[in-house]
Design a protein around this nucleic acid. Structure first.
Length: 177
DNA sequence: TAGGCCATCTGGTCCT
DNA sequence: AGGACCAGATGGCCTA
């Protein structure tokens, strides 16, 4: 390897100015490249910083999600993928619970076409509390004659479905360490 | 020691 | 142009 600026023996002796110009051009290019390199480098470092931050936020959100998921024992730390799958199943189980509850409990008076409007001050949305003592019969009819559901059955059904959701294939069947 | 999980870096792509 | 998002690569830590 020959140094780029080494005078070759065959080179005709040029006047000093062009050679000096070339040398200066080379140095300028090197400076530009170095500048570009540091610029790129600083951009990369900034991008890395942002990326790290982004992942930290993502992990924080994942931690929040973990904190609302029931695990046993309580201090069980789910992995990321487990957390997502568990959350999916948990939501599914809760939806199922709601569905069962709606089947068992009477619809709110407004939906039954009841003449009496919600009394002033009462929460129109809290139709659960407005269930009359006759609710069990409605509940039974909702479940069909073959399954004589009682109000007690209704109360247990959601819990059962919640109990079962952990066993779903995608969910963590057992707490992992 | 192999395998799983994780954090970080990196370059590419898309969006504002 | 710069930031957000994404996926692949890499190396460290932990556990069976």
């Amino acid at each position: 390897m020959m140094p780029a600026e080494a005078p070759s023996s065959g080179e005709v002796a040029e006047p000093g100015a062009p050679r000096e110009r070339r040398r200066r051009r080379g140095r300028a290019r090197a400076r530009t490249e170095a500048l570009l390199h540091t610029l790129k480098r600083s951009r990369r470092v900034k991008a890395n910083d942002r990326e790290r931050n982004r992942m930290h936020h993502l992990n924080a959100a994942l931690d929040e999600l973990r904190s609302v998921l029931p695990t046993f024992p309580d201090d069980t730390k789910l992995t990321k993928i487990e957390t997502l799958r568990f959350a999916y199943n948990y939501i599914w189980a809760l939806s199922e619970t709601l569905r069962l509850a709606e089947q068992c409990l009477p619809p709110p008076p407004a939906f039954r076409g009841a003449a009496a409007p919600p009394s002033p001050g009462s929460d129109a949305g809290s139709w659960l509390s407005s269930a009359s003592p006759s609710a069990p019969s409605l509940c039974a009819s909702a479940s069909g004659p073959s399954s004589p559901a009682t109000s007690e059955d209704c109360a247990y059904a959601p819990a059962d479905s919640l109990r079962g959701f952990r066993g779903l294939p995608a969910g963590p069947a057992a707490p992992l360490r």
